[in-house]
C-alpha cells in the first residue's frame, strides 16, 4: 500500500504538471502565430539581397524543413523541444541556446538590479510616508504619479545627458561593470517602483486604520514596530499579486532600456527576432519568459502564504 504524498510534494507535483502545460501552450501558440503571420521566412531572411536564387531558396527550405506539411513541422518542432533542443537561429546562424545563453546574463543583471532597487525604494517610501500628514503623502504620491507617467525612453536620455554626457560619472552605454549598469537600472526601476510604492502605502494605510492597529498600540507597541511588523505584512498581499504584472513589465521594459543604453541583452534579441521572423529564436524567448512567469508566480504564492496565515489551508 502506497502512502499518500506529503502535501508539499503534492503541491510541487501539481505545480510541475501545470508548468509543463503552460510551456507547451506557449510554444504551440508561438509556433502557430509565427506560421500565420504573412510573409515567408525565407523571403524575410533573404531580404532584398542581391543573390537570391532558386538554388539558394531551395537550400534554405531544405535545411529548415520549411516544405514539410505544417502538422509534420509541428510534430518535429515538439519532438525537438522535448529533448531540450531549441534549434538554430535563421538570422544569426547559431544555436538559439548559445544566443540566449550569451545575452541572458545582461538582461538578468538589469532586471534583477531594477527589481532590488524598486522593491527597496517602494518599501522605504511606503513605510516612511503611510499615514503621515497630508502634505507628506501628497508630495510622495505626486512624485510617484510623475514617475509612473514618465516615458522610460525619455528618462533614459535625460539621465544619460546629465550623468554621462555632462558630468561624465557613468559611461554612455554597454555592459561590463556596475557603472554601466547604474543608469539603466534606475531607468527601469523608477516607473515600476513608484507604482509599487503607491500600492504598498494604500495597503499600509488601510491596515493602520483597522482595529488591530489600535489594540497593538494600546499594548504599548511602538509605531515603527507596528508599521514594520504588522502593517507591512498586510500590505504585502495586494503588492505581491502585482508580481506577475511586474515580471512582464520588467521583461518588456528591458527592450526599451537596452535600446536606449545600447546594452546587449534579450530585449534587443527579441526585437530583431520578431521583425526578422527568426522563429527558433522567438520560440526560445517565449519559452524562457513563460518559465520566468511560472517561477515568479510560484514565488508570489509562497510569499502570500507567509504573509497571510489565513491563506494556508488546513492540512
Amino acid at each position: 500500500m502506497s502512502r499518500p504524498l506529503p502535501p508539499a510534494a503534492r503541491w510541487l507535483l501539481h505545480r510541475a504538471a501545470g508548468a509543463v502545460l503552460v510551456l507547451w501552450g506557449a510554444a504551440s501558440l508561438a509556433f502557430l502565430v509565427l506560421h500565420l503571420v504573412p510573409g515567408d521566412p525565407v523571403t524575410t531572411l533573404l531580404g532584398a539581397s542581391a543573390t537570391d536564387s532558386t538554388a539558394l531558396r531551395a537550400e534554405i527550405r531544405r535545411e529548415y524543413r520549411l516544405d514539410d506539411p505544417a502538422a509534420a513541422q509541428y510534430a518535429a518542432f515538439l519532438a525537438r523541444l522535448a529533448t531540450g533542443e531549441l534549434g538554430d537561429s535563421y538570422q544569426q546562424r547559431q544555436p538559439v541556446s548559445v544566443i540566449i545563453g550569451e545575452q541572458l546574463g545582461h538582461t538578468a543583471e538589469l532586471a534583477l538590479g531594477a527589481l532590488v532597487l524598486l522593491v527597496a525604494g517602494a518599501l522605504l517610501t511606503a513605510t516612511l510616508t503611510a499615514g503621515r500628514g497630508r502634505r507628506v503623502r501628497g508630495l510622495a504620491s505626486g512624485a510617484e504619479l510623475i514617475a509612473v507617467s514618465t516615458p522610460a525612453f525619455w528618462l533614459g536620455i535625460v539621465l544619460l545627458t546629465v550623468f554621462s554626457f555632462r558630468l561624465n560619472v557613468f559611461p554612455v552605454a554597454g555592459a561590463g561593470d556596475w557603472r554601466s549598469l547604474a543608469l539603466p537600472v534606475v531607468t527601469l526601476a523608477v516607473p515600476f517602483g513608484s507604482l509599487l510604492a503607491q500600492v504598498l502605502r494604500e495597503g499600509m494605510e488601510s491596515a493602520l486604520h483597522q482595529p488591530f492597529a489600535l489594540t497593538a498600540r494600546s499594548r504599548g507597541l511602538r509605531p515603527a514596530a507596528l508599521r514594520l511588523r504588522h502593517a507591512l505584512r498586510h500590505a504585502a498581499v495586494p503588492a505581491v499579486t502585482l508580481s506577475g504584472w511586474l515580471a512582464g513589465g520588467l521583461l518588456s521594459g528591458t527592450v526599451l532600456v537596452e535600446t536606449v543604453f545600447a546594452r546587449p541583452g534579450l530585449g534587443r534579441v527579441a526585437l530583431d527576432a520578431v521583425s526578422g521572423r527568426d522563429i527558433p529564436v522567438v520560440v526560445g524567448l517565449v519559452l524562457l519568459s513563460a518559465a520566468v512567469y511560472l517561477v515568479v508566480n510560484a514565488l508570489a504564492d509562497l510569499i502570500c502564504l507567509w504573509a497571510d496565515p489565513r491563506l494556508r489551508s488546513p492540512v
Binding site: I157, L160, T161, S164, F165, R166, N168, P171, V172, A173, G174, T259, V260, F261, A262
Partner: peptide
C-alpha cells in the same frame, strides 16, 4: 567598435569624449 543605435546617444558619446 561600439554599436549605439540611438542617434542622440551616439552623438552624446562623441561630444563627451567617450568614443
Amino acid at each position: 567598435v561600439r554599436f549605439l543605435p540611438e542617434d542622440s546617444v551616439r552623438a552624446g558619446a562623441l561630444t563627451s569624449g567617450q568614443v
